[in-house]
Design a protein around this nucleic acid. Structure first.
Lengths: 298, 298
DNA sequence: GATCCATTATGCAAATATGCATGAATTGGC
DNA sequence: GCCAATTCATGCATATTTGCATAATGGATC
């Protein structure tokens, strides 16, 4: 019958393409093997086989390192598109799965993951023992579209329409500093007195600055002379007297080495949103965890 | 290290996704097996394994027929995207390949494939025996973007910018009919006398009508009361006296059962373009065949 | 320059996937 | 209503792929 169908062009081994993709992105066969839960030799042979199958040299073996050839780079672009689509397949499939057993990856900021989540997760484990939970503590906003997590806890309102969000109860954050440091800058008692203080910043200080402004503290990017992406480091810097930091009262008030800066100042409300991908929320498993977290955290 | 990488979501077996794609598109495991050069049982097991892996039922086994479930249909959409990307990978790879051995698929209209190509292809086979040639005779314009062919011969100028085209020498086409039929409509001797004649049409008559108009024959869609997508059938209908048809002088003049309609009329120039995809033209193999065809057919 | 560490290559046994042959079930035509 | 033609499922021998253990190689560091 029809020999003019275009299947011939997709007849190559797709798993080899996957091996190539992950190897190129991770930078080495070994790293790719770790990422995929395989051994390095398998990946090596798959990439080699792909090169033979396509008749294209993908990597230049420069010593112990693999560097992409020009052809490899050109091809990687298209293989990435395959990977993107594969991610969509996986996401859509997870969304349709009625199975409860399986893994759910929850992303949250370091502090939230360390201080608020543990008891909730522990309860969830008892409540739904078939569900494996993976907590991803990162202060970067993971890309739910790319399935870097199934459920994320965010401190800003998500805008993308592909995402579903539910607002949880607010926490209160206050400014904290070591008594030593406060003495050093003259024990400020008004917001204006903080104009020259050192604030310990995050990678993106926009929301933080806006919150401070609402409290009446008028400072600029110039006040952030210490910046870290880690809440832990942030907090340790505060304790060490490196400047003024911010954290939830739950944590700050429990720490004897620090005290509130301007205790009468209104708190910064820290809102938390529970977020998931629209496509995932049709999954029984995701729904269960999503609803459980919403219930427990609000 | 980073557990927040999104590789986990693409860890499923991509070949199984391919099996699902082809099965769903072809409509059965057996058809898919034929298309991919595998056996049906392998595909069946791969699809089954994919269902288990994703936890989603893709097909409903209704008797001997597989029908997509709702979930399967949703997923197919994304798997199609994977397939599209895979096609790009393959095309790009072919374009980069310096290997000469391999297959080249040439698409041409039925008539062209049957009457003009054979001697040229025979010569090419002698000239480049490592190249396997596949001739796809179809009157539909194959989609070069989707790699339905590597090289196409077309009778209209391609407009897409991704395509590279070279114009070949023109052929002349004339109107032909069986003497019986001509007698029946009164042996017309002027273009105007053809106003009520039956013309045998193609699926899309736009270019044909335009060509006739240039010859001074003013007819409309209404004159096409017999339509076929096959040049063979078209020609057999002409020989059988079903109406007026068109073909290249090379073929028409060689057929004793028919004669030219209005022999003094100017011929319809039939231009031919040799077309390939921009990305493929960087391939040594494609270049060789493309240049050879251009040389031999102009 | 010797050593350590992490990388890629290779040999081999075990696990896995594939193709073939066959059987069962279903459709469509006469 | 029966027959022929397809289709999917299954058992089994064979091919292929995978993982493991172990080299071999190349950078980095002191």
């Amino acid at each position: 019958m029809q020999i003019c169908m275009n299947w011939r062009s997709i007849k190559f081994d797709w798993n080899r393409a996957r091996a190539f993709l992950v190897t190129a992105e991770e930078g080495s066969l070994s790293a790719a093997a770790r990422a995929l839960g395989m051994v390095q030799s398998t990946l090596g042979r798959q990439v080699e086989a792909l090169e033979a199958e396509l008749g294209v040299t993908l990597f230049e073996r420069a010593g112990r390192r693999l560097v992409l050839t020009r052809n490899g780079r050109d091809l990687l672009e298209h293989v990435r598109a395959m990977g993107e689509a594969a991610g969509q397949v996986s996401m859509s499939a997870s969304g349709q799965s009625e199975l409860i057993e399986g893994t759910i990856r929850i992303s949250a900021t370091e502090t939230f993951a360390a201080k608020r989540l543990p008891p909730v997760i522990a309860k969830l484990r008892k409540f739904q023992p078939e569900i494996t939970v993976e907590v991803c503590a990162t202060n970067k906003a993971v890309d739910l579209n790319r399935r870097e997590a199934d459920i994320a806890l965010r401190h800003f309102r998500p805008t993308q329409t592909e995402l579903i969000a539910r607002k949880l109860s607010d926490d209160n954050a206050f400014l904290y500093a070591a008594p030593d440091y406060l003495a050093q800058i003259g024990d400020p008692s008004t917001p204006a007195a903080l104009g020259d203080a050192d604030f310990i910043g995050f990678e993106n200080n926009d929301v933080y600055l806006k919150g401070l402004k609402q409290m009446g503290v008028e400072i600029t990017e110039g006040n952030f002379r210490l910046i870290t992406d880690s809440h832990n480091v942030h907090w340790e810097l505060v304790k060490a007297g490196a400047g003024i930091g911010v954290t939830m009262d739950l944590i700050g008030d429990a720490e004897p080495q620090v005290k509130r800066v301007l205790p009468d100042l209104a708190p910064v409300p820290v809102s938390t949103w529970l977020v998931t991908h629209r496509e995932l929320n049709t999954s029984r498993r995701v729904r269960i965890v999503f609803d459980f977290l919403a219930e427990e955290l609000s």
